[in-house]
């Protein structure tokens, strides 16, 4: 469980990036943090594994205050996947890359072997185990980065902009993967401004703007509130845009899911036929 209590944070340069943020993420929850560039999303999630410590206020992860703990200790429970995989890949093979964190955490060699096998299978990388990560494509590198974090099986997973630079198929794979992790009871915090991706996942949505949380609720409610989204400089998901126009036809407003939309439209069409 992550508890953030009235956290303020200023960068050494003087920018106050968080201006009093309070938030609780329960175990097993799936949260998307959204908001325009510079809203403070990355700054907020960097507090979850202690990379940043609050200037004032408290962040507690599973009851431990982050300012009293090291990043290495917190990282065991909080896996953090950075936006750009090229900021972390440095080993000669994919295997070594995945082993890096496991060695840092002091796992036994036999356990490390097992974990690598498990992680490469999970992410469909088993044919690349002896390949250099630098030879892989962008999407594959991103998966290696993800595998290297999942390998130590952290309870909480933080993903910063996971969909950037991914094609549609890769995004769909990622979505299914996240859903799978969620059924295993993992806590997932995802930073993104990919509104369509969030609409498909329908997680809890936390909207940020200028260092503050401006809204917090189910994706279905937040992502269909056009006034709110406009303030956060986010456009409505396409499905919600259609239903905004269809409201005169007696359709409900809070629809973001494609299948739900399809079912409603089919129903109406059937009714009109008869």
């Amino acid at each position: 469980m992550i508890v953030v209590e009235d956290v303020r944070f200023s960068y050494p340069g003087g920018v106050e990036a968080l201006k009093g943020v309070s938030l609780t993420v329960k175990n097993g929850e799936f949260v998307a943090i959204m908001g325009q560039n510079g809203a403070g999303k990355t700054t907020l999630v960097k507090h979850f594994n202690g990379l940043l410590k609050p200037t004032s206020g408290v962040v507690r992860v599973n009851g431990v205050e982050t300012s009293r703990s090291s990043v290495a200790a917190l990282a065991r429970n909080v896996g953090f996947v950075f936006q750009n995989p090229d900021h972390q890949l440095f080993c000669e093979t994919v295997d070594d890359e995945i082993a890096f964190a496991l060695k840092n955490f002091g796992y036994e060699q036999t356990v490390i072997e097992k974990r690598i096998t498990w992680a490469v299978n999970l992410l469909g990388l088993s044919q690349y185990r002896k390949t250099s990560p630098f030879m892989l494509s962008g999407g594959e590198r991103k998966r290696v980065a993800l595998a290297s974090v999942l390998a130590w099986d952290p309870q909480i997973l933080v993903l910063d902009e996971p969909t950037i630079g991914q094609d549609h198929r890769q995004k769909e794979n990622l979505r299914q993967f996240i859903m799978q992790l969620q059924t295993q009871g993992k806590t997932i915090v995802m930073v993104t401004h990919d509104v369509e991706f969030v609409a498909e996942c329908n997680p809890r949505v936390v909207l940020m703007r200028e260092g503050k949380i401006m809204a917090d609720g189910q994706g279905k409610q937040i992502l269909t509130n056009s006034e709110l989204l406009e303030q956060a400089s986010i456009v409505l998901p396409q499905v919600a845009q259609i239903f905004k126009h269809l409201i005169t036809q007696g359709f409900p407003l809070n629809i973001i899911d494609i299948y739900e939309a399809k079912n409603l439209l089919m129903e109406k069409l059937e009714k009109n036929k008869t």
Partner: peptide, 16 residues
């Protein structure tokens, strides 16, 4: 700036 981000990314993987 990039060096800082990389350091963060590796610290997040347990590098001390």
């Amino acid at each position: 700036e990039e060096a800082q981000t990389i350091m963060d990314a590796q610290k997040a993987r347990g590098l001390e």
